Simulated scan of single mutants.
Amino acid sequence: MTFFFPFPMKHPTLHLLPALILLLLTASFPAMSLPTQTEPIRQVIGPYGFPEHRVALADSLEIAYVDAGKGSSTLIFIHGLSSYVRAWERTLPELSRSSRCLALDLPGYGKSSKGHYPGTMEFYAEVIHLFIQRLHLRNVTLVGHSMGGQIAVTLALKYPDDAQKLVLTSPAGFETFTAPEREQLRAFYTVASIEHTPEAQVRANHKYNFFRMPPAVDLWITERLRMMQCDDFGLYALTVVRSMAGMLDGPIFERLPQVQQPTLVVFGAEDFLIPNRALHPQLTTAQVAAAGVARLPHAQQVLLPEAGHFAHYEQAAEFNKLVAAFVK
């Protein structure tokens, strides 16, 4: 459930939001009005398929996560903007055969607590740092997708002892934006636009994340539509808006040379979201990937064919093989 915001559907090639968002603006469809349900979002999301746990990191901040597998290495999976644990459902079964794998819902997302969280990259990095401390995790590899990749780098820079290695899949932060571009992007969506996204757009938004959208993603769409009826969906929408601002306000590109951990960078060759097609029509995904990798002191890059923004999902077998070898 990751959704981005291009222009209305009659202009499908004009993408004014960065390669990480997943909710289309509502201008080309009538607004969808759904009855509000009294249950919270966490109750309308089905089982994740692995043992589920919750840990309180503060009085009003509780993190939901799954914990699978055993091994000398620990992998922490960090989802992207507007996403949740289910984004890793094709990764956890294989990698948990040889490593302990923990995938968490960030604050405001999925089954974790909802609230007025700042949404900055520093905030999420601090949350994962506390998560690592509270669970006494060792030999950690951070696996971050999209916004999760930007969070992983932020954490690695602030708390270098927390992570031995990094895996960045379609990471945010490699593509840079000027100040005017950032203001353009910031202005294009609001809590209200997210709350009133029509069903047709919800479905279209998911498709933009894939080269060929797998049928299993239908469940993500169903759960996203259920979420929109929940009484805490407004807090979820606020989290998405603040997270987007947090990415724009927490750039990492200039700081990449300071990352000392061995890093595996994976992009889908057919990523429709990175680079931003409207602001940077001259760039390709391969160029954005290479520019970031060139600044990392200890990095290797893989471009997976026939894969979009969710490269780790569409090409799961190859991605899992790459990560297992990298961690080992």
Rank of each mutant, 00 (worst) to 15 (best):
G80T: 06
F188M: 09
S170R: 04
I221K: 10
L14G: 10
D249S: 01
R242E: 02
A269V: 01
A87S: 10
V241C: 05
L273V: 02
E270Y: 12
H116R: 12
H280S: 08
S60E: 13
L304D: 00
Q260S: 13
R186Q: 12
A163Q: 06
E181R: 03
Q261P: 06
H280I: 07
R255N: 11
T36C: 11
G71T: 07
F272N: 10
K321C: 05
A125S: 07
I252H: 05
T38H: 12
A87W: 11
L225P: 01
Y84P: 03
V240M: 08
V302R: 12
H129C: 10
A56H: 13
D231A: 08
F310E: 11
S83P: 02
S33L: 12
Q184E: 15
H145E: 13
F7M: 15
Q150P: 03
D161P: 10
G46T: 13
P107I: 10
Y159K: 03
A103T: 04
H129E: 12
G115V: 03
H136M: 12
T197R: 02
Q258M: 08
V240D: 01
D218N: 11
E175V: 06
P47Q: 07
Y109K: 04
A179R: 08
V202T: 09
Y117F: 14
A278C: 14
A163V: 12
N205Q: 14
A192V: 10
A192W: 13
G250D: 11
